[in-house]
């Protein structure tokens, strides 16, 4: 285990340890364009270390694009351009020379659809560890058990680690993916509607898990489910389309957003009056 932390440290560029006042993630005027089409404009947001931030709002207003900027998955989209200022613990995330591989090990991502690799459960979990340079078997096995326990999957699968991951239920697959992301001890875990492709019971299991992960890492979750945002998040940011471009209309604590919204759009949205 210590071994693994040492490995994770290797990938952390030396930065000044931010004080409690400095947010872990700091976005100022972030805009995203796909070719000539601007999808996200002028987003400013602070995310504190150890918090759960929910990005809410209707489909197609740039929440996922914003999430993609945080671990540079947007690089995969052809002709995608990001401007503005985006920092993780002081490091410039939009620097074109940034080592995105190292970044993605610090900032994990959970997809809407569970995407275990079509290998065995063990192989799914072994891969990122081996990639990170954990050569020896015992620390890998220990890390796998630790992360499977963290997502509550250990008791369900410890006796069939060599079975196909694809044979697990949807909820189990999603928890496996979370465990897989946790293996490298990311500072931030991004979740893109992690429960929306699951049945309600599996969804509730995954949702319960999010609360318990708070101690390990900072979580940014995109969700359409307002009740879910209320249950799991400390802070919320409401994304909305303005003139065809997504932006944040209001952000604050869950209490502010749901009980004392400043914007009428927010008030109407949380009431369920507009979609």
């Amino acid at each position: 285990m210590t071994n693994l932390h040492a490995v994770a440290e290797l990938h952390r560029p030396p930065v000044d340890e931010p004080g409690p006042a400095v947010p872990l993630i700091r976005a100022r005027g972030v805009s995203v364009s796909y070719g000539a089409r601007r999808v996200l404009g002028d987003v400013s947001l602070d995310i504190a270390r150890g918090s759960v931030t929910a990005l809410i709002g209707p489909s197609g207003c740039g929440k996922t694009s914003f999430l993609g900027c945080l671990n540079r998955m947007v690089d995969l989209i052809p002709r995608c351009r990001v401007t503005g200022e985006l920092r993780l613990a002081g490091a410039d995330l939009l620097d074109p020379t940034l080592d995105v591989v190292a970044l993605r090990r610090r900032v994990g991502l959970i997809f809407q659809r569970p995407n275990p690799f079509p290998f065995s459960i063990r192989h799914n979990l072994d891969l990122p560890l081996r990639e990170a340079g954990v050569r020896r078997k015992e620390p890998r096995a220990a890390a796998i058990e630790r992360c499977l326990r963290a997502v509550g999957l250990w008791d369900e699968v410890h006796d069939r680690l060599d079975h196909a991951a694809g044979a697990l239920s949807g909820g189990q697959q999603q928890r496996l993916c979370i465990a897989r992301a946790l293996l490298l001890d990311p500072e931030v875990l991004l979740m893109d509607e992690p429960c929306s492709a699951l049945d309600p019971i599996s969804g509730a299991t995954v949702e319960a898990l999010i609360g318990s992960l708070k101690e390990r890492c900072t979580i940014v979750i995109v969700t359409h489910n307002l009740a879910q945002a209320r249950r799991v998040a400390d802070r919320c940011a409401l994304f909305w389309l303005r003139d065809g471009i997504g932006t944040i209309v209001e952000q604050g604590t869950v209490g502010q957003i749901f009980h004392a919204p400043k914007s009428e759009i927010t008030a109407a949205y949380v009431r369920g009056a507009v979609a």
Binding site: D75, L76, P78, T97, D99, V101
Partner: peptide, 9 residues
């Protein structure tokens, strides 16, 4: 899947 160049040798 566009960036063909990479800095990793």
């Amino acid at each position: 899947m566009t960036s063909i160049s990479s800095r990793r040798p």
